[in-house]
Design a protein around this nucleic acid. Structure first.
Lengths: 339, 339
DNA sequence: TCTCGGCATGTGCACGGTCACATTCGCCGG
DNA sequence: CCGGCGAATGTGACCGTGCACATGCCGAGA
């Protein structure tokens, strides 16, 4: 029997050291590629590592360095396209830099859930935090738990510019609004997102800014919840009066729901009503009609987010910072008003 | 000055022990709620913990117990609704059981990316693995890397029943197909998913089974890639011949693309063509027309997945196992064929 | 020739928990 | 009155790494 009780335990640096005929510290030096090591010694150690299938023990290293090399993500809506894309990009970028990513998804955004999620991440000793959730509440909780790590919010905000990163939501919202006004619309509603999402607030702000900049009378925005269901419901309500020619929805899902309601009412898009969305989810090009919207590069956002965070963690020089400019994608759901 | 150099370091069990006037081992016993400990002692220790804001150090514990309490997720399409929902549910269930979740998203499914992702998770000492990706390749790689942890695949498969968990894809596909046949369709195409996704294969199998069970002549399935773009493209191709009255798309996104192509060709759904999808993403109810589809409970899937995995890790008795039955959701995209 | 400095390497301890094995003490049965 | 047992607690080692410091060696400069 050539191999007996194989399922022993993983080799440690001392095992490697013994077989390579060096001290464990030399092995450690090879691992952290310390300069002062003779090439032949290094090679010998590397050979043994290969032979033994040696893998460094993360826990041991974390214990002694008190560095977890883990980034936490607190997300409130990870099933949506935008957040999910950013999360994937974050994970990838972090992995490329030798970091791990641990997520805490919270389904409701009450204080309790937020605290649970944050505590869970904190217990893991995260070195950085990415927040994709209504920030106001999260940051309050963050302060209460006295968690003190670099953090970045994946949203736009005026309050906390050092820690925010985002596609320029205001610019995007202004683009969308300008597009509608440019087509001749003067009665435009805005279907906003939940107001504790700074993202939603920024889009609303952009809408209002552009409306007043162009001297178009403004209507009160309607506060939604990002879902297509809400869009549908809001659309039905709005159509009972029908005092508008265009609607700017704060995301593509709500735009979809709106279009559904408009068609249900026997109206045509864009002949009777123009609709514009926000995000450019991959499906938007295939809606009926294909949706005019504002594209955000979520993946780029995720990557920059990691760069910002790691810059903070590892004390890199100033990052390029800045916001990402969104792009207006004109399709068929917007047109000139009928009258 | 009452508080000087506060930013010291986190308290350890020895700090707690000292202030509570007990040994560090007693503190450890409190942490692991060992039975033999006097209630008053326990309370004293707990009080000190509270006062010091003591938090156990995960790395130290992992080092000595050689248990990471971490579950890894390897995902190839985390931005899609289904996988994202399952991931969120997994994370939540794991957290409730005191486990952490670490994800590795791979954008391409080549051997290299898979190996990278798995190595990354392995380096972390995961105790269980969830795979949401084309399994064939993944499991080959898994074997090669000699990673030896309990794993579960979130898909249906005949090959590896002990490690798979899923909504019963075959049953769902048969439901969808039966629905079309029941409406009177006899020329039905199937737009399948990528064939190395066992999920896709199972749906295709269900389609073929039902077709032959009902003696309906079968056409060769078209192999897609899950995207709406592909659905649109495939739809255009199919419509150049137009020898069908219904299409069963393997997911809702492809169904959306198909509907787009059908409308582009000046046809009406379901009058000229019936279309049925799979998944019931939240948007499906607002497509035009609202999509008939097969609903999967992704969240339940994620929860059961964790139960299965933890059962394996912690040596629980047999789990309830079994598959989850999907549900046919009839909306307006399917109807009787015109002739 | 001796000292000094830098390179290559080794020695021992610390990190913060848990585990195996004492130790103390009170109580009970013979 | 003594031995034994179990409850409650303490002692020291150990997990796998990295760090501070020591050591030996070799070459250069005094």
């Amino acid at each position: 029997m050539p191999e007996e009780l194989q399922r022993a335990k993983a080799p440690s640096i001392r095992d490697v050291a013994r077989l390579a005929g060096v001290s464990h510290q030399t092995v450690s030096r090879v691992l952290n590629n310390h300069p002062s090591i003779r090439p032949e010694t290094k090679q010998r150690v590397l050979d043994v590592m290969e032979r033994l299938q040696y893998k460094p023990n993360r826990a041991a290293r974390a214990l002694v360095t008190s560095r977890s090399r883990t980034i936490g993500i607190l997300s409130a809506s990870s099933t949506q396209y935008g957040p999910a894309s950013s999360i994937a990009a974050i994970e990838e970028a972090a992995r490329a830099s030798g970091y791990w990513v641990s997520t805490a998804n919270i389904e409701s955004v009450d204080a309790r859930s937020i605290a649970d999620g944050l505590a869970h991440l904190a217990a893991q000793g995260i070195e950085g935090l990415v927040v994709i959730a209504p920030q106001v509440r999260v940051f309050d909780t963050l302060a209460q738990l006295s968690i003190d790590v670099p953090y970045v919010s994946l949203q736009s905000t005026g309050r906390d510019p050092d820690h925010a990163l985002s596609v320029d939501q205001i610019a995007g919202a202004r683009m969308a609004t300008r597009h509608l006004i440019g087509l001749g619309h003067r009665s435009i509603y805005h279907l906003a997102g939940p107001q504790d999402w700074i993202e939603a607030e920024a889009r609303m702000r952009g809408f209002l800014e552009e409306m007043s900049a162009q001297d178009v009378p403004t209507t009160a925005p309607i506060l939604g919840d990002w879902t297509a269901d809400f869009g549908y419901w809001a659309g039905r309500e709005l159509l009972t009066v029908r005092d508008f020619t265009a609607i700017f929805a704060s995301n593509d899902q709500m735009a979809l729901g709106l279009m559904h309601a408009v068609r249900d009412a026997g109206l045509e898009i864009p002949r009777d009503v123009s609709i514009i969305g926000f995000d450019d989810i991959p499906e938007a090009a295939h809606f009926w009609p294909p949706l005019t919207t504002v594209r955000q590069d979520f993946a780029e956002l995720g990557r920059r987010c990691v760069a910002l965070l790691l810059g903070d963690i590892e004390d890199w020089p100033d990052d390029q910072g800045g916001t990402i400019v969104p792009e207006l994608i004109v399709r068929d759901s917007t047109g000139r008003p009928a009258f």
